[in-house]
Design a protein around this nucleic acid. Structure first.
Length: 423
RNA sequence: GGAGAGGUGGCAGAGUGGUCUAUCGUACCUGACUCGAAAUCAGGCGUGCCCGCAAGGGUACCGUGGGUUCGAAUCCCACCCUCUCCGCCA
C-alpha cells in the first residue's frame, strides 16, 4: 500500500507511476473517495465529541432527576445520528481501503521505461552460452528422464504438475536445497524453517489475498493456505511489530516447498520441470533501514548470482522495465539461467525492493532512535534459488555423450558423486 | 476431541456500567544530588487516524467481530489465541 499522504500531497507522482507501470486506473476517482471519507470522518468525530461532553455533564447530575432525563432524551437523537453516519463511514472506509490497494508502488528512478519483457534491460551475462549448446536436448527428452522425474505417477497420485522425484532425481533436489541453504547461511542469512500453511491475515498482508490470480491452494475446513513461496510466512514473521533499529538489517533464508495453482497458465511453458504446482525453493529475505535498501538489493542479487556462478551455469541479469516489473515492487532484478535444450532463458530468481509498500500493509516498523518515532522498514526478497529450473538447466547444460550428467564441483559434496545417472 | 482458567500499554498488574483522559509498580528518557556511579528525589514516557504551516486540537484502540445502552475495558452473543488437566497421536 502507498502512503496516503503521498497521494494527497503529490498526486502527480502517483499518476506518473501508474503510467510507467502501464496500468489503467482512474486516480481522480481514488482522490474523490479519499476526500469523501475524510469529510465523513470529521463529521462523525465531531458528533462523538458532543457525546463525550454530554456524558461528562451527566455524571454531575443526580441520576433520575428531570435534568438528567432531559439529557438522556437529547442524547438519544445524537446517538441515533452517530449510528447512522457510522454506517456510511464504514462503507466509505471499505471503499477507501480497496481504492488504496489498487495504487501501485512507485518505480525507482533507475527503472527503465517500457511495457513488455523485450523492454527489460540486460545488465550482465555470465558464462558461455554457445559452449553448452552442442549436444543438448530439452530435459524431458533425455533418455530415462521419466525414471527420475515421474510425472505420470505424480498425475495419478495427485494431479498434473506434481511429479515424483526418484533416485538420483530426488538426490539432486536434496543436494540443491542443502547447497542453497548452506550458501545462504554463509552469506549471513539466518536459516528459518517456517510454517507452510498460513492464515488469511498473513496472505492478505503480502497481497496474495484477495486471490485475484487463483494462485493459492486453500484447505478445508480451517481455511489455511498452502504457501506459494516462503516469502509469505517469512515476511509475516514481524507483522504488527516494532523491531529494534540496531537489529537492522535482518537477513533470513528459508527452504519451503511452494504450492501454486497457476490457474489460467495452462499451455504456457508447461513441459518438464518449467512450471509445477509444487516445487522447492530457498528464499532470501531482508528487513532493512530505508536508507540502505538499494545497497542491500545489490547485495541480495549478488548473493543469488553467486549460486549460479558456483554451479557454473550461464545466466544473465535483467533490470525489469516499468511495465513488466509487477505491482508492489519499486525495483526488480531477474536472474535467468540458460536452458541449453530449448535454447531459452529461464527465470530462477526475482530480486525485489518493495521499499515500504509491503511493510505498510503488514505494519512492520522500527523505532528511529533519533526521533523516537516508529517508521516503516523496507523489505526485500529474492529466490536463492528455485530448484526445478536450476535442475533442468543442470541436466541440459551438463549432459554428457554417455547420457550421464556431470555434477558441478561445488555441488559434488552435497550430491555425493560426480555424475547423475538416468539408469 | 472433552473439562476448566485466562487474554488490559515494553514487562508486571488493578479496574465488574458514568471524571477511565486506564491506578500502582517496573523498565526506559531527562534533570537534581555526586569527582563519577549506585541509591534517592522531581518530571517525562503507548499506537493509529483526522484537522492544522505550526503550536496544538479532535477521535479511536483493553484478544477479534457483532449486540444492548444516553454512555461499555466493564453486561450479552459468536469467534480466535494462550495455559492446566484428561483423551488421542509421530
Amino acid at each position: 500500500m502507498l502512503d496516503p499522504r503521498l497521494l494527497r500531497e503529490s498526486p502527480d507522482t502517483v499518476r506518473a507511476a501508474i503510467a510507467k507501470k502501464h496500468l489503467d486506473l482512474d486516480l481522480d476517482a481514488v482522490l474523490a473517495i479519499d476526500t469523501a471519507w475524510r469529510t465523513q470522518l470529521a463529521e462523525v468525530e465531531q458528533l462523538r465529541s458532543k457525546q463525550k461532553a454530554a456524558n461528562n455533564e451527566m455524571v454531575a447530575l443526580r441520576k433520575g432527576s428531570p435534568e438528567f432525563l432531559a439529557k438522556v432524551q437529547e442524547m438519544k437523537a445524537v446517538s441515533a445520528e452517530v449510528k447512522a453516519r457510522e454506517e456510511g463511514l464504514k462503507g466509505l472506509e471499505e471503499k477507501w481501503q480497496q481504492a488504496m490497494l489498487t495504487l501501485p508502488n512507485i518505480p525507482h528512478a533507475t527503472v527503465p521505461a517500457g511495457r513488455t519483457p523485450e523492454d527489460n534491460q540486460i545488465c550482465a551475462t555470465q558464462g558461455d552460452v554457445a559452449a553448452v549448446s552442442a549436444l543438448a536436448v530439452p530435459h524431458w527428452e533425455i533418455p530415462g528422464f521419466e525414471r527420475l522425474f515421474d510425472f505420470a505417477r505424480g498425475a495419478k497420485v495427485t494431479g498434473a504438475g506434481f511429479p515424483f522425484y526418484v533416485g538420483d532425481g530426488a538426490r539432486l533436489v536434496r543436494a540443491l536445497v542443502q547447497f542453497f541453504l548452506h550458501e545462504g547461511v554463509a552469506a549471513g542469512y539466518t536459516e528459518v524453517n517456517p510454517p507452510i500453511l498460513v492464515n488469511a491475515a498473513s496472505a492478505t498482508a503480502v497481497g496474495q489475498l484477495p486471490d485475484k490470480e487463483g494462485m493459492m491452494y486453500e484447505t478445508t475446513p480451517d481455511h489455511l493456505y498452502a504457501v506459494p513461496t516462503a516469502e509469505t510466512p517469512l515476511t509475516n514473521f514481524f507483522r504488527d511489530e516494532i523491531v529494534d533499529e540496531a537489529s537492522l538489517p535482518v537477513c533470513r533464508c528459508a527452504y519451503t516447498p511452494c504450492f501454486r495453482r497457476e490457474a489460467g497458465s495452462y499451455g504456457k511453458d508447461v513441459r518438464g520441470l518449467n512450471r509445477l504446482h509444487q516445487f522447492d525453493k530457498v528464499e532470501l529475505l531482508k528487513w532493512v533501514h530505508p536508507s540502505q535498501s538499494y545497497a542491500e538489493l545489490e547485495k541480495l542479487r549478488l548473493d543469488a548470482e553467486r549460486l549460479l556462478q558456483k554451479l557454473e551455469l550461464p545466466y544473465h541479469v535483467l533490470l525489469m522495465c516499468g511495465g513488466d516489473m509487477g505491482f508492489a515492487q519499486a525495483k526488480k532484478d531477474d536472474l535467468e539461467v540458460w536452458a541449453a535444450g530449448p535454447k531459452r532463458w529461464l527465470e530462477v530468481s526475482s530480486c525485489s525492493n518493495f521499499e515500504a509498500f509491503q511493510a505498510r500493509r503488514a505494519q512492520i516498523r522500527f523505532r528511529n532512535t533519533a526521533t523516537g518515532k516508529p517508521e516503516l522498514v523496507h523489505t526485500l526478497n529474492g529466490s536463492g534459488l528455485a530448484v526445478p529450473r536450476v535442475l533442468a538447466a543442470l541436466l541440459e547444460n551438463n549432459l554428457q555423450a554417455d547420457g550421464r550428467v556431470k555434477i558441478p564441483a561445488a555441488l559434488v559434496p552435497y550430491f555425493g558423486k560426480e555424475y547423475l545417472s538416468f539408469q
